[in-house]
Design a protein around this nucleic acid. Structure first.
Lengths: 347, 347
DNA sequence: ATCCTCTTTGCATTCGAAGTCATTTCATAT
DNA sequence: ATATGAAATGACTTCGAATGCAAAGAGGAT
């Protein structure tokens, strides 16, 4: 009947209000705490009858293993930090949702950190260390020292759409170069002459990379271009377009934008503020393949990032590194898909 | 020199790779572990000189208190679960970012759960219990039993833009009724005659509430209307518009949409598929006040939800209830702001 | 110097589950 | 019936920080 003897420090608490512990379940089922623990561990040795008893007791007491206590003893929190700078980017929510669901499917929980300003990174990292996350997926700019901190602490990181500048880090990116080449080549073949570029903010890795790629390709093909900087949002697309129209005396006939949102802002601005026809008078291309890019009013010709494959790769790489921290940094580059919309006349 | 005597079970580990514990810091500073603990606790009694020594040692060893261990002993994880059904909704990313930042500012971390399907709720809750979150903010549909589970376990919840159907629960919502009244009144005064409504999915609380409010108001004012169901996304706005045009033999001149995204889909569809002028031939109104609603091409007349105030309230209510679990459920209703765009001719 | 109070400090215990090790149970082989 | 190995089980310790309690120290008043 009664279990041999259990340290009586754990007094009976039949869980009203408070939550049941493995001791409660053990007492209820007339077994030891160890048995309860084993019962919830895959592949442990428990007799079928005992398991039944324990599971019944657990169900009755609404027992759920305390992940906090598990984390403490196993040194595995099953938590992964996701650090994203600006969730309002329109492209990130999709990424976040995908990552979260994929990690969940692997039994891993997401600790979300959303930055209002890049300067908040250090405070965020402070918390990341405290929670002993098993790893991190980062879509925000990290200084080399910050990356080094991850390495020092043995916390695997995977960067999303950025690389460790100078420091080797695992990362997944969408290939800006091939994407921009496809766009530029198409535009050039489409007989455009005056090129404009709307760049992203200077501190954006992909922004700079895309613009550089486009610019170089244009140069290779003997085309000149004007560049104006935006900040990835709709309003800056509008503003940049106005600026470019001024700079080119309204002669610009091809516009390359560092992301879709600015492309959309520019298209609206061209049509509404200047009465310009897109794509007849002006071809506009973007990058990302966000939802609004396919809206009837825009149908932006753009490069769609393979978000599903990228997030899948990010999660896979992270999990690999959690299991085997010695794995060397690897960079995976995914080609985007050219989405032929009707915002540009490609050749 | 050496500290009196410390249980020698904690062997010297100078933290290379592994992370320093309070014992490591204690040894390094020549004090007891308790002192280290107190040093990191607000308002504890530590002599200034000792504090200095300890902080220096902590800095040197890169010590960060283990939040997992803290959570175990204090029974406070400082974690809050945020459960959101569809992050792709365009409205939620903003909410999520706000919530996350506000909670962070309060020293609370966010455990994010994003649902692919509503049926996943139970699995998610399982994890919520395991992680002993201090509370939860939920923007997803919960059954009464699921809500009861929160109450049983003493985990405070705040619902966002939904209410506990039947069960009293703390919640913040944007007032659909006053919002729709303003829109409907404006449309009626603007001399519209054939009204259409694009509803949200049947399982959306706000969707149903908005449509009901609009419908009743129209009825009060003696106007009839046709209702077609969408699912809150762009494509369904397009589809619903087509359906409504068919139903009204293209005579509809006022369209009320349960959210902005469908309003935008409908506007595009009207203009592009039917060559209808908005707002000259058809007035369209939405709800939410999401980013794209203010784009030049749309300028949707809509009700903007006071997201900042709502998230602030949600966080405040949750924290209150974490401190004082006995607080009774409260429902806070925020009036939205009528955003006069140019997608509708209001009187 | 003595006594008393208030502040510092350390010891020991606690949180809840995992896992090591030793012991018991049980089925099978002889 | 006995030996043997495998399976099942329990006692105990551990993870890292917080905290009640008692002891030690620091000032102040007398």
């Amino acid at each position: 009947m009664a279990a041999k003897k259990q340290p009586e420090t754990h007094k009976a608490r039949t869980t009203p209000g408070g939550r049941a512990t493995s001791y409660d379940v053990a007492r209820h089922a007339g077994v030891s705490q160890s048995a309860v623990s084993r019962c919830f561990k895959q592949g442990a040795s428990v007799a079928p009858r005992t398991r039944e008893k324990i599971l019944a007791a657990a169900r009755e007491l609404h027992y759920y293993p305390n992940a906090i206590a598990q984390g403490l003893i196993t040194r595995r929190s099953n938590l992964v930090a996701i650090i994203i700078s600006n969730l309002t980017n329109l492209y990130y929510p999709e990424v976040l949702a995908e990552l979260t669901q994929r990690l969940s499917a692997q039994g891993i929980r997401v600790l979300l950190f959303s930055l209002a300003a890049e300067s908040d990174v250090d405070e965020v990292l402070d918390q990341v260390w405290r929670y002993r996350v098993d790893g991190a997926i980062v879509a925000a700019r990290l200084h080399p020292e910050q990356l080094a901190a991850f390495a020092d602490r043995g916390v695997p990181v995977v960067l999303y759409n950025r690389i460790g500048e100078g420091v080797p880090v695992a990362s997944v990116c969408c290939d800006s170069v091939s994407g921009e080449h496809a766009l530029v080549d198409g535009l050039v073949e489409g007989e455009h002459h005056i090129f404009g570029i709307i760049a992203g903010p200077a501190d954006s890795y992909v922004g700079e990379e895309r613009v550089e790629a486009a610019r170089r390709r244009l140069q290779q093909l003997g085309r000149d271009c004007r560049v104006v900087r935006g900040n990835f949002d709709y309003a800056s697309g509008d503003a940049a377009l106005k600026e470019l129209m001024r700079m080119t005396h309204r002669k610009m006939d091809a516009l390359i934008c560092a992301n879709d949102l600015m492309a959309i802002g520019a298209i609206d601005s061209a049509r509404i503020n200047f009465g310009i026809q897109v794509p007849q008078d002006l071809s506009v291309v973007g990058f990302d393949g966000v939802g609004p890019a396919t809206w009837l009013a825009y149908q932006v010709t753009t490069i769609r990032q393979p978000v599903r494959r990228m997030t899948e790769a990010a999660v896979a790489m992270l999990l690999e590194r959690i299991e085997r921290p010695e794995l060397s940094p690897e960079q995976r580059l995914f080609a985007g898909e050219l989405l032929l919309g009707s915002s540009a006349r490609l050749g």
